[in-house]
Computed example of a mutant assay.
Amino acid sequence: MKARNIAAAALMTAAGTGAVQAQSTVTLYGVADVNVEYANHVGAVPVATNQFNRGQGHDVVRMNSGGLAGSRWGIRGTEDLGGGAKAMFVLESGFSLDSGTLQQSGRMFGRQAFVGLQRAGLGQLTFGRQYTSMFEALANFSPTAYATQYEPVVLQSGANFREDNTIKYTGQFGPVTALAHWSFGTGLALPATVGVATPIGGNGEVPGSFRRDTAYGAAVAYAAGPFGLTVGYDQWNPTIGTSSGTLRKAAIGGSYGFGNAKIMAGYRWGQNKNAGGTVIQRDDLYWIGALYQLTPAVGLTLEYHYDDLKSLAGATQLANPWQIGFVANYAFSKRTDVYLTTAYAKNAGLMLESLATVYANSLSLGNSYALGNGERSMIGAAVGIRHRF
């Protein structure tokens, strides 16, 4: 992404601040991404307002914001404090380009909002709303790079992949990146749905309770030459009833590049327990895919996900969800491209949306990918344009 740099000196006019102005920068950046999509067998997200009924599946044709990347605008900045130390901040707002409304539950800076300090050789420490360590580490091992339209990111990294009230450490040591984080209260609340009798999570920190709605995780990534590898762990302790559950995930991913191609693969172990310690979900997610730069302007991506769903809400005889997705994009320039994205999902909606994800994708995007009653598959295709600034 080519960003527009704005010198801090342009924002400050007071005399005697020349030294600070010369060492401080603020960057304005963003993405505007919109598409028109067709999908079939689409039902309603089963929540209390519709008596937990997905209804009949329908074909839909609709405009969406975010196909290859979530539409956003942001500001980031740094100040050189001397001696290899810097202060830094990021404020990033997600919005729906088709309607102009805010995403991430109406937060002004719902994608990211943090401030921190960094020092060469030691790393950086940041405070605020941030991505989890495992989510960030897996970003370079997901072939479609977390494409908004059909990537099953919630099943992979958890609905809590962004968390409020978070302290995060990031260290870069040659080819190795180390990450660790702690959230005092994730700020994620999911409503009750079919198979889930009570809401999950809460709106933030819980006074008098050190554990409820907290979360933590860590990850290590290695990248050198054509080879990459990462491992990570994530745990969320959401409010369930009057106590807290335990949602755990661990993942490993690898990549290898050669010529104009790159292959990626990964595995994610998952186990969710309710407040009483009973397992409510256990699964193993696998993925593999490849990128190929056909010409300097044309890029192709193919990705496959398979979830071995061992148990869910007491059921053990379950049809395993899987999805195959394909993306083709044509770049007019480094900033503007057009694309076709399509996917087919079996035993779940697109993005592998089902009770296993607590329908968090649909609730977040505002467009349902829940299967209609009696349906077993869903196909979708979208044509869009993306501009980065």
Rank of each mutant, 00 (worst) to 15 (best):
residue 175 P to Y: 02
residue 189 A to N: 06
residue 187 G to E: 10
residue 158 G to T: 03
residue 148 T to H: 07
residue 135 F to C: 01
residue 158 G to R: 08
residue 142 S to Q: 13
residue 173 F to D: 01
residue 157 S to L: 02
residue 164 D to W: 15
residue 150 Y to M: 01
residue 141 F to T: 10
residue 136 E to Y: 08
residue 166 T to L: 08
residue 150 Y to V: 12
residue 151 E to Q: 05
residue 154 V to Q: 15
residue 176 V to R: 05
residue 159 A to C: 04
residue 137 A to R: 03
residue 135 F to G: 02
residue 173 F to N: 02
residue 148 T to G: 06
residue 192 A to I: 07
residue 190 L to I: 09
residue 156 Q to S: 11
residue 178 A to I: 00
residue 160 N to E: 10
residue 149 Q to T: 15
residue 159 A to Y: 15
residue 147 A to P: 14
residue 192 A to T: 10
residue 176 V to N: 01
residue 179 L to C: 00
residue 189 A to F: 01
residue 144 T to V: 05
residue 152 P to W: 10
residue 168 K to F: 06
residue 170 T to Y: 05
residue 146 Y to N: 12
residue 183 S to M: 03
residue 155 L to H: 04
residue 160 N to H: 12
residue 152 P to V: 10
residue 187 G to A: 14
residue 179 L to Q: 03
residue 166 T to K: 12
residue 176 V to D: 07
residue 157 S to I: 02
residue 139 A to M: 10
residue 182 W to S: 07
residue 186 T to V: 09
residue 142 S to Y: 11
residue 151 E to I: 04
residue 148 T to R: 11
residue 163 E to S: 14
residue 174 G to R: 00
residue 155 L to V: 05
residue 137 A to D: 08
residue 173 F to R: 01
residue 147 A to H: 15
residue 176 V to C: 04
residue 138 L to W: 11
residue 141 F to Q: 07
residue 162 R to W: 12
residue 143 P to H: 05
residue 158 G to Q: 06
residue 181 H to M: 04
residue 155 L to Y: 07
residue 187 G to D: 11
residue 144 T to I: 03
residue 160 N to L: 02
residue 164 D to V: 14
residue 157 S to K: 03
residue 147 A to F: 15
residue 147 A to I: 15
residue 139 A to I: 06
residue 171 G to I: 00
residue 164 D to M: 14
residue 145 A to G: 12
residue 188 L to V: 13
residue 179 L to G: 01
residue 180 A to Q: 02
residue 145 A to Q: 15
residue 155 L to F: 05
residue 147 A to Q: 15
residue 150 Y to D: 14
residue 179 L to M: 07
residue 172 Q to Y: 08
residue 162 R to V: 14
residue 183 S to G: 03
residue 141 F to P: 11
residue 140 N to P: 00
residue 139 A to L: 08
residue 191 P to F: 09
residue 144 T to Y: 05
residue 181 H to Y: 08
residue 160 N to P: 10
residue 168 K to W: 06
residue 192 A to K: 09
residue 148 T to K: 10
residue 151 E to R: 04
residue 190 L to P: 13
residue 142 S to P: 08
residue 170 T to M: 10
residue 185 G to M: 12
residue 145 A to C: 11
residue 171 G to C: 03
residue 157 S to N: 15
residue 179 L to W: 00
residue 170 T to R: 08
residue 181 H to N: 07
residue 142 S to M: 12
residue 178 A to C: 02
residue 162 R to L: 11
residue 138 L to N: 08
